[in-house]
């Protein structure tokens, strides 16, 4: 499959220009996306009721599509896959606030509906008129790799021509508290942001590079997985690295990124 467009949002801002390599700028204390950046997305796409998580997803998704030249086009033959370890947990907890603070029969339906994982995918689909598969995935181990692999499977199945693949994490009370609750597993402050790749079955758009997925664990080998050590940082790191690799390949025609997974760690073991 081919990476035809890239979008990103992080504490550094909207766009891929300032996309940081995971681990860079560790001295930065506030890793949150600015309110202004998110407000601009919400206003532009009329996300009046959408939550912050949705705005983070939307920012990268629409940028990836625009990057490939699909800014104003209906994308009926396109799917969307959103992968997140913690999902819209700020909104989930907002709904728990309602349950804790009010009688059970007086909680807000809008808060509940936005706490559902696939609400963000719904907004992206509506805004971009995406009519293919819309899949929301969660996990803590090989999530980004498995999501890339699934994108390839969908594209090869012929049920859509493109996939907008989004990796996203939001900082909120839970993710900000992880280092204090599980200090052995979450050593550092997590990244917040999203990366979107517009993946195509044929070269189009910016055509940054082709990308292949290779599962390298052999059968019968017991994977060395430490589930409680898997971090959203690792996960988003994989998404950020993939985008950075693709951007770096953009001026090298014919480049292929091969992405592999060994025991829960994403590796880029080969760049041709």
């Amino acid at each position: 499959m081919f990476i035809s467009g890239i979008g990103a949002i992080s504490a550094s801002g909207i766009g891929t220009e300032n996309l940081e390599t995971p681990g860079q700028n560790s001295e930065i204390q506030d890793r949150s996306i600015s309110k202004d950046a998110l407000l601009s997305v919400k206003n532009k796409y009329d996300l009046r009721r959408a939550d912050r998580y949705t705005a983070i997803v939307m920012a990268s998704a629409v940028q990836a599509c625009a990057d490939a030249g699909f800014a104003d086009c209906a994308m009926a033959d396109t799917g969307i896959i959103i992968a997140s370890s913690f999902g819209p947990h700020r909104t989930t907890f907002a709904f728990l606030n309602d349950i804790l603070d009010y009688p059970e029969d007086q909680v807000l339906p809008t808060t509940f509906s936005h706490s559902v994982h696939n609400a963000a995918a719904s907004y992206v689909a509506s805004s971009l008129q995406i009519r293919g598969p819309t899949i929301s995935l969660t996990g803590f181990e090989d999530l980004w790799f498995d999501a890339l692999e699934l994108s390839d499977v969908f594209l090869n199945s012929g049920c859509c021509q493109r996939i907008v693949l989004v990796g996203v994490e939001e900082l909120a009370l839970l993710t900000q508290s992880l280092p204090s609750i599980l200090p052995d597993s979450f050593h550092c402050r997590l990244l917040e942001g999203s990366v979107a790749l517009l993946l195509s079955s044929t070269p189009e758009g910016k055509n940054y590079t082709s990308i292949t997925c290779s599962r390298r664990s052999s059968c019968g080998e017991k994977p060395d997985r430490h589930s409680s050590c898997a971090t959203a940082n690792d996960f988003l790191g994989g998404a950020f690295q993939t985008a950075l690799k693709a951007l770096a390949s953009s001026n090298q025609p014919g480049t292929t990124i091969s992405i592999g997974s060994i025991s829960g760690l994403i590796t880029f073991y080969k760049t041709i």
Binding site: N118, L137, L150, R215, P223
Partner: peptide, 11 residues
Amino acid sequence: SLNGPALAVSN
């Protein structure tokens, strides 16, 4: 001890 993809779908 499986080695294939493992995805939770929340649709």
